[in-house]
Design a protein around this nucleic acid. Sequence first.
DNA 1: GTCTATATATCGATAGAC
DNA 2: GTCTATCGATATATAGAC
Lengths: 224, 224
Amino acid sequence: MTDQLSEVPDEGVTRRAARSQEDILEVATAEFAANGYAGARVDEIAARTRTTKRMIYYYFGSKEALYLTVLERVYAQIRRVERGIQIDELSPTEALRKLAEATYDHHTTHEMFIQLVSIENIHRAEHLQQSETILRENATAITLLEQVIERGVREGIFRDDVDALDVHMMISAYACFHVANRHTFAAIFKRDMLDPALQPSHRRLIGDMIVATMADRRNRRTVP
Amino acid sequence: MTDQLSEVPDEGVTRRAARSQEDILEVATAEFAANGYAGARVDEIAARTRTTKRMIYYYFGSKEALYLTVLERVYAQIRRVERGIQIDELSPTEALRKLAEATYDHHTTHEMFIQLVSIENIHRAEHLQQSETILRENATAITLLEQVIERGVREGIFRDDVDALDVHMMISAYACFHVANRHTFAAIFKRDMLDPALQPSHRRLIGDMIVATMADRRNRRTVP
DNA sequence: GTCTATATATCGATAGAC
DNA sequence: GTCTATCGATATATAGAC
């Protein structure tokens, strides 16, 4: 890799710069997630990279712009996960469970994403609202869920008074809480919600919860 | 904040001093909730009270000690709400719904509590762990839930593979998410989860969700 | 693009009079 | 208990050489 780069000086410099920026973003993500926006230190980020503080400002302009780039990066990541979910051959019930489990799997393995979302909410999403990319792209996660629910309602197996956003809210709430409130929950109740021994049953429970709620046909407004 | 959070002042402290401390705590709660621990400014808290910054340090010693007092105060508040819940004459199903709705009602009307819990989780609950009062008192919320579930299992109407902490987790997750992730959710999906027009249906849904999950008797391990 | 050194601002905390 | 004034530490951001 390094040899190839030195053979092509022009690309080498750019590629090296891109790698340096990636390096900064990686460290910055951890720093912001761990300490919040105001608590994060640019000095600390610089110290943990191969580059210097001067380069952070050279590449990103400001602490806020760096934070925004970090935010866009983790939202792009979950978008990729969501796009990869396949539910074509599944029944509405099975599809719902699979979507819930996929969200649970993503959130429980991406603690920094959840922390950054919490931080962003403390700041009333004012940074997120500056990102047209996130606002435009991340809302599309809901379309798959809409199709599943519509099919389930049409087949008469789902209640019809809960829409896709409500279901997404229930799934996200459960999966987020496991990670976001892990520490206060553990401190008070002495149970680590991310304990690997608990994950199979918690993964089953999120599916049970969503399926049981949606399959409760007593709540239908119209007869199928 | 409209709730009565004030404690009875010590005999040695004048009424004016106690009122001054209450004034500081009121403003500090809002300041920490709105900006996080590192983002909160002691100067700003002082400016919005009738007292001065010097007095904040005189009464509370440090920014961190002030924050800890704020934390204990909001946790004491939810404890009072939890203690006031009456479910004596209700069936296990009705009791479960009432507990879920009470949590929903508390969280949706105490945004600052939820924000402070989020902030505390960003800091890995390191302040909360210093408060013996919170750790000792707030875990008792679970006993009422334990009794309800035990009764429901005994009567053969609830599944028996989900314990009280899991139910508490599901209820808290739903109710917390509404408040904690309100801003990112609204930014991306253009729906304010705290819109008063949505509250009746969301309040019904949390009850439906918990009852449907627990009443799913296919998940029983033992025959009642 | 990369470095060292530094400007500029702000914040938590305190001194000391009354 | 209460005030004004201010310290000392630390933060973001930048200057300017190479």
